[in-house]
Design a binder for these strands. Structure first.
Lengths: 199, 199
DNA sequence: TGCAAAATTGAACAATGTTCATTAAATTTG
DNA sequence: CAAATTTAATGAACATTGTTCAATTTTGCA
């Protein structure tokens, strides 16, 4: 019993790793049943013995990438003090990750999650992802009276929507046209959203 | 000579109208060579006598939809006074249009423009679309000293990125989960972005 | 009317997702 | 250990979609 499951999970992982490699390297467009299976060392038909369909496999990658993103960002900002500046830093790392791996951005925000919608609440995980990454800092800001609860709600959303919007334009439409301009605009947006309100 | 061109343009339009109908009705996923050609009353092969490929046809629709959007919004806000409130109104109509026609949103912001990138600068048109719609109002705000030029640059971007971001989540991921919540959050964002700064 | 040019078309190919019956491997059992 | 049975892996085959092209039909006109 046990052995069966271990072995089964091992083969599943071969496919998952293959898919993740392709996603990071070539992007979603290069991920298809045959390319994944070849990279995993199996026939394309074998994939269907381990996953309901290609979508199921692909969206397992989402969770893995989320964990990875969280770990990477955690390391980068681990010795900063809580507060608005750390929210900026987290958001910038968050954006950087997607600039480095546009395939993951596509996966998180672009790709329609055909049959996944009901069975998993993966879309919710993505929606709240940045909020969660900054959770401690928002709490700190509230406790310290840096922002009111109402301000925090607005700023959380602004951050989430703005960063998603600019990433969508930059990664999908190459607007702005170079990375420097992208960073400049992003910084300006972040500074403005997180500036201390003068009310 | 003349007649040839008129007739040719007529047939092109049959395909374009068919594609636009399908895009508005069923969305991008239902637009394929065979469905468009059937709706146009021709064989799928005929499409290639009038368009380089399916992408060319689809991205002709983008321009048409942009014109349509501009006209619709123009009508809705025609007897409002210039200024920040009209920018809000325009942006809300802009968002409403895409909520009504998610297929057009997909087309504008999601779909990769394969071969179009170089030949047309359609991506630029989309990027600046909201800016252009509000152009007079931003100028008015600057002239009246309601916002500084720097503030305007930041607010333009915030508007553009935020509205694109929330539309992406709402239309593609159903987050927030209902239209009321979507409107509530959008309004809150708009109010905050366009509030009179207290510097 | 008959012919040359133009327009239309279905057949055919490639890529991709998916299913399924068959084959190969592994495990159990006598 | 060998036969039988269960499990895993696979290629063949089909569906869908984009695209090309040679053949056919239609059109314009001398």
């Amino acid at each position: 019993m046990e052995r069966k499951e271990i072995q089964e999970q091992r083969v599943r992982n071969y496919f998952i790793e293959a898919a993740k490699n392709l996603l990071k390297g070539e992007g979603l467009k290069s991920v298809n049943v045959r390319s994944v299976a070849e990279q995993a060392g199996y026939s394309y038909a074998t994939l269907y013995n381990y996953f309901k369909d290609l979508n199921e496999l692909i969206f397992i990658c989402v969770k893995d990438f989320q964990d990875e993103t969280e770990i990477i960002i955690g390391q980068k900002i681990k010795d900063r003090n809580l507060g608005a500046e750390r929210i900026k830093a987290i958001t910038k790392e968050y954006a950087s990750y997607f600039v480095e791996y546009p395939g993951v951005f596509e996966l998180f925000f672009i790709e329609r999650m055909g049959s996944m919608n009901n069975r998993t609440n993966i879309t919710g995980l993505i929606y709240d992802f940045l909020d969660r990454l900054c959770d401690e800092d928002w709490n700190y800001c509230r406790e310290q009276g840096i922002f009111t609860q109402d301000q925090i709600e607005i700023k959380k959303d602004q951050l989430k929507y703005s960063v998603t919007g600019i990433l969508l334009f930059y990664l999908h439409r190459l607007q702005p046209e170079d990375y420097h301009e992208f960073v400049k605009i992003s910084d300006r947006q972040l500074d403005d959203i997180l500036k201390i309100s003068e009310l």
